[in-house]
Design a binder for these strands. Structure first.
Length: 660
RNA sequence: GGGCCCAUAGCUCAGUUGGUCAGAGCACCCGGCUCAUAACCGGAGUGUCCCAGGUUCAAGUCCUGGUGGGCCUACCA
């Protein structure tokens, strides 16, 4: 029996599920449903990643245990998958004993075979920022992020000898050209491998970050989140690094497809593959990195993300239409834009006009002229044979493309048949056949149109499970599921079967739903676009959240008084010669000559537009060299790492005016 | 600065290994049909295939350089 095992990344439980998560999961669900439909021994795994710094912090803020926190946070994912009609076979959580046991056993195995070693890392550690800094990072000997003192820490950690397996991975990729998809991504990974592959630090001292899987031989360490998370793909199906594998492991692994976002390609392709090699396993057959969605032409952000809140989309369009749209609109692997206008046009053109209307016109004519009963097929004409040929090609193309995760091509292939159906009606002119009393031919023609709908209903089951059933119901087909095997043959319907009263399965959308319009109007409000979210898995090192900083300690007025803020006027601005995000500014502060200030605002401002701009400057900051250029102060700007706007003063003031 | 990818009709994009490769869908216009969800069918188009060189009998298709855009990475005082 053919077998098929597909996975999504396990999503970071602290994030709210969004369109990116939904996209990957819908794609995996469609693949799983398709293989299930074809009788393959199918397994679809999704889940959540529950360890790491951010979970710990969030739980701390809520005053509950991390476990209680993740227990609550997992529900939104399960809810959304239910609403999107996602039928997974297993949902893994990394806090489950079955997973922890595998991670720990894997650690032991690697240690025993000499793939782990301890090493001492020395560096300046900032407790406030919870990270290491190099000597040159430090400002005035203090943490550059928080200004807090740093300590020279010698920290022991465990390292995985990833470097041992780099060459093998390179060979594997060369020998399996379809391993990394799309092909362009393969180059990225090979480029990454061209550099010397280092070893991977896979532990964190529990004293510093306790929310993780403890090392089996030393509980003062917990497992690095990636090492933990990646193993879910094998732990969930019964891998046992040291003992006997679970009964299902052999029939599941290696998986056929890992679907993931392009941002986590390296971790999967490099970290995970080498881990598998070390554990004596082979990687999955295909690792497919898909693109990111922009929304209404903008990078996804909290603001714009609201207009594609998956629950809103399901409420207003229905799960099936959302599923269809995201898979049809862009090639899997490319970035794409989700616009409501695009969705409206796409669904009207494809679903209402082409497919829905084909059914409606055929069933209406059957109702009107054949008493609502499916007509018998007549002897095929050349046109009929041609139609059959098209059906054969459409079904074959659909299957081929779908199995390659080329959803848009698969659907396009089916739609060639649907369009041919509309054309067939036009050339055969059933209304003329009716007028002329050619009932036998009329029955044959209309039935072939209904057969096309049957083919569509069959192939669309994985993509639009509910709508496919509705299509089938319009044909009085009760079989569930409709078997895909042999479905291309346009002779399945039983003559004489009574059809229900025709009803549009895909109503035309005349305008965007009111709630969508409201959401769009709200999002129009001019908020510049912050950075894109990662649609999947955890970030390697949890960065400090800039938008909602942990409540800082209260300071007195005297502390504030240490900061000298002055108005200034930018008199010259140019790009930093060797740093993309930096601008080198000359700012007039009322001193004998302008100050040179380097600012990380190049992503948002053109140098020429800044000249003459009034700004507020931290004037008594210690000078520092930024990528070789001295900076004597700092511009105030709103936003975190993504600058949203410069701080200025409402009216023109002489440079050097005190600000407080 | 280093690495990778991309640039083809108004829009979104197809164009494997160089030789009907100048295409599809959408939008628009014209015509047809009337069964149908103001749907369907046909037709017309429009393109310096980013720019400049080069290789070749032949180049969107290969090479070099440039321009513009995206992603990864370092710099964000």
């Amino acid at each position: 029996m053919q077998r098929y095992y597909v996975t999504t990344p396990i999503y970071y439980v602290n994030d709210k599920p969004h369109l990116g998560h939904a996209y990957t999961t819908i794609a995996a669900d469609v693949l799983a449903r398709w293989h299930r439909l074809n009788g393959a021994d199918t397994w679809f795994l999704t889940g959540v990643d529950e360890h790491g710094q951010k979970v710990l912090e969030a739980a701390g803020k809520k005053g509950i245990s991390p476990q209680a926190h993740v227990d609550a946070m997992v529900q939104p994912y399960k809810d959304l998958w239910a609403r999107l009609d996602i039928r997974y076979d297993d949902f893994i959580r990394t806090t489950e004993p079955r997973h922890k046991a595998v991670v720990q056993a894997a650690l032991l195995k690697l240690k025993e075979q000499g793939d782990l070693y301890e090493d001492v890392y020395e560096g300046w550690y900032s407790t406030a920022a919870e990270r290491f800094w190099t000597e040159k990072d430090l400002v005035d000997g203090k943490c550059p992020d928080t200004g807090q003192p740093v300590q020279w820490v010698q920290e022991t950690n465990w390292f995985f000898r990833m470097s041992r397996y780099g060459e093998r991975l390179r060979e594997w990729i060369e020998a399996h050209p379809d391993f990394l998809q799309p092909a362009s991504r393969k180059n990225e990974v090979l480029g990454y491998l061209r550099k010397d592959l280092g070893d991977l630090c896979i532990s964190r001292p529990a004293a510093r970050m306790s929310w993780g899987i403890p090392f089996p031989w030393d509980e003062s360490f917990v497992t690095y989140v990636w090492f933990d998370a990646l193993l879910n793909y094998v732990s969930a199906v019964g891998f046992s690094p040291q003992g006997e594998n679970g009964p299902d492991f052999a029939r599941r692994w290696p998986a056929q497809h890992h679907l993931l976002g392009k941002d986590i390609l390296t971790t999967h392709a490099v970290y995970f593959s080498t881990m598998l090699f070390a554990l004596g396993l082979e990687p999955a057959e295909h690792l497919y990195a898909h693109g990111w969605w922009t929304v209404e032409g903008e990078k996804m952000s909290k603001t714009i993300g609201n207009v594609v809140d998956p629950h809103l989309l399901v409420d207003e369009y229905g799960a099936d239409v959302v599923r269809y749209f995201v898979l049809r609109e862009i090639p899997f692997g490319n970035d794409g834009d989700f616009s409501h206008k695009g969705l409206l046009e796409r669904t009207n053109a494809d679903l209402a006009n082409d497919l829905g209307n084909l059914l409606h016109r055929a069933s209406s004519m059957t109702g009107k002229w054949l008493g609502g009963r499916i007509g018998a097929l007549d002897a095929p004409t050349p046109a009929d044979l041609e139609l059959q040929g098209l059906a054969d090609r459409a079904v074959a193309g659909f299957a081929r493309e779908l199995e390659a995760a080329q959803f848009h091509k698969a659907l396009e292939s089916l739609w060639e048949l649907v369009r041919a159906g509309n054309k067939y009606i036009d050339t055969e002119q059933p209304w003329a056949l009716n007028r002329e009393g050619k009932t036998e031919r009329l029955g044959g023609v209309l039935t072939r149109c209904l057969e096309i709908i049957r083919v569509a209903a069959t192939l669309l089951q994985p993509v639009m499970p509910t709508k496919a059933r509705e299509l089938a119901a319009q044909l009085s087909l009760n079989a569930d599921p409709l078997l895909a095997l042999g479905c291309a043959s346009l002779d399945h319907l039983v003559a004489g079967t009574v059809l229900p009263e025709p009803a549009p399965v895909f109503p035309r959308l005349l305008e965007l739903p009111p709630r969508i319009q409201e959401a769009l109007a709200k999002a129009q409000a001019p908020t510049p676009p912050p950075p894109p979210p990662s649609p999947s898995l955890p970030v390697p090192e949890p960065p400090v959240d800039e938008t909602t900083p942990a409540a800082p300690a209260l300071i007195g007025i005297d502390d504030f008084g240490k900061i000298q803020l002055l108005t200034g006027r930018i008199v010259a601005a140019e790009r930093h010669p060797s740093a993309d995000r930096l601008l080198v500014l000359q700012v007039e502060l009322g001193e004998d000559k302008p100050r040179q200030i380097v600012a990380g605002i190049a992503a948002r401002y053109e140098p020429q537009n800044l000249v003459g701009q009034q700004v507020v400057v931290v004037a008594n900051l210690k000078p520092v060299k930024l990528r070789g250029i001295e900076s004597h102060g700092m511009l105030l700007a709103a936003g975190g790492k993504d600058v949203r706007g410069l701080v200025t003063v409402g009216e023109p003031l002489p440079p050097g005016t005190l600000v407080r």
